[in-house]
Amino acid sequence: MTTAVAENGSAATLSPMNMKPTTETQIQGQAPLRVARVIVNLFSRVGKREPPAPEKTEHIRLISIATSHFVEKARWGLDMLEESKESPLFYTEDLHTPAFASFFTVPASKNKASQTPMIVRSDDTVMWGSDTILRELCSGKNGAPINLYPGDLKDEIMELEDELGRRLGASGRCYAYGSFMLDKQYYGLAIQQTTSNCSKVEQKVFEKMFDKGIDKALIDLMNINDEVMETSARELRAMFGELSDRLERTGDEYLVGNTFTAADLAFATLVYFIVRPPECEPLLIPEKGMPPKLLGLFHELAATKAGQHALKIYKKHRPVDAAGKLVLKNVNQNHNPFKLF
């Protein structure tokens, strides 16, 4: 069974949230991608963690781009389920770079989707899109212990969640990627950010190919240009302003119903790379050397009431380790096919 779902549409002035999908035909038709897939598949592997507890009997594979804000949204929900003793679910994160993630999502979805996050369940059910994953696994369905869409708040939560995805998803991604990729002096940081936690071969191949076509392909996929950058910055400021006003007006601790819901989780994750919560340290590169204009906007937004709300949500509700950091539930993906002993 395959559930075909995409992320929400974006604001009309921004590139679509659901970026142009990659198909098997496209991978096969482009020699650099075809060769890269052969190398990556040869020297890396898809692994599986051991169950962390006896009650964890159902495994989920999360195919991801580590630093994606949409992936972090799905990851947070999965961490809550794995942390719950009442849930049989545990997962392994299958980490990849932008562009190369399609080598794994396309076959997993039988050529129906290339985006992340994508999950593959024990019964081979495949789902993609952070909204779909969260709503399927964390809405109390089939007795699931986590319900981020409680009772009569569900419609309001989903409406706000959709708006957050439309307005913050594309604008945040375009502004962040564009700040690094429209100026080649920041290519090193872009590579460092996008290849963290992947297999060594995937990191190396991505790095070698980055300025030989991957850069232009990603810019085209997101339709990044100076006008879109300005539009993205305006939209980010507008959304943070509106949410700050909402929190100020209601005086509530949370966005909907004065309780922690998918609306708070969605907002916090979609802006984690902007407000930079300490819990997300494993996903973030240091600020040193980052584009000044990017840092200026990030610091401005983090100081707003909405920005402080996102930081509070991470501090109070994000599952973390003893050091207060989120944990990537991955395994060693490096593989040497020529090792004889």
Rank of each mutant, 00 (worst) to 15 (best):
F43M: 10
E163S: 12
Q192V: 03
F206V: 07
A12Q: 13
A4Q: 05
L168E: 04
R45V: 02
K208L: 15
E287I: 08
A302R: 12
V275L: 04
F90N: 05
K112G: 09
E242R: 14
E281N: 02
T269D: 11
Q26A: 12
K315H: 15
D123I: 01
L221H: 11
D94E: 11
V120T: 01
T22E: 07
K56C: 09
Q26M: 15
S196T: 13
I27N: 06
D124M: 02
R246K: 15
R49K: 07
Q193M: 15
K316N: 15
P286L: 06
P278M: 09
K85V: 07
S84N: 14
K293L: 14
A238G: 08
K329V: 00
S102E: 09
A233R: 14
E50L: 13
Q333P: 07
Y186C: 12
K110W: 04
G289D: 01
K73T: 08
A302H: 06
P286R: 10
R167G: 15
E82S: 11
W128R: 00
V126Y: 00
F298Q: 14
S10F: 02
S171I: 03
N330K: 13
R135D: 05
S130P: 00
T23G: 07
P319C: 10
F43L: 10
L42A: 06
R234S: 14
E161G: 09
T13P: 03
Q115E: 11
V331R: 14
T13Y: 08
R237P: 01
F43E: 07
S122G: 04
T13W: 13
S10M: 01
M209P: 00
A302T: 03
K216N: 15
Q192Y: 05
W128M: 05
G289F: 02
I157T: 10
E242G: 14
A11V: 13
R61A: 13
P277I: 02
T304E: 01
G307R: 01
K208W: 14
A4I: 11
G29P: 00
M17T: 07
R37C: 04
P51R: 08
P292R: 10
P51T: 03
G178F: 13
S244I: 02
S114M: 08
K293W: 12
L182D: 05
L294M: 12
A190Y: 06
N332A: 12
R34P: 00
M80Q: 12
S64Y: 00
L182R: 15
S10E: 05
P117G: 01
L340F: 15
E58G: 00
V46Y: 02
K293N: 13
E248T: 15
K200Q: 12
F90L: 04
R237M: 04
R237Q: 09
V201P: 05
V201Q: 11
L295K: 09
E83Q: 15
S109E: 01
K293T: 14
R37E: 13
F341V: 11
L236Q: 08
F103I: 06
G29F: 07
A322G: 08
L284D: 04
I60L: 12
P107I: 04
I133G: 00
H309E: 05
Q193G: 13
Q333G: 08
V5I: 10
K20R: 09
L328A: 11
G257K: 00
S15V: 04
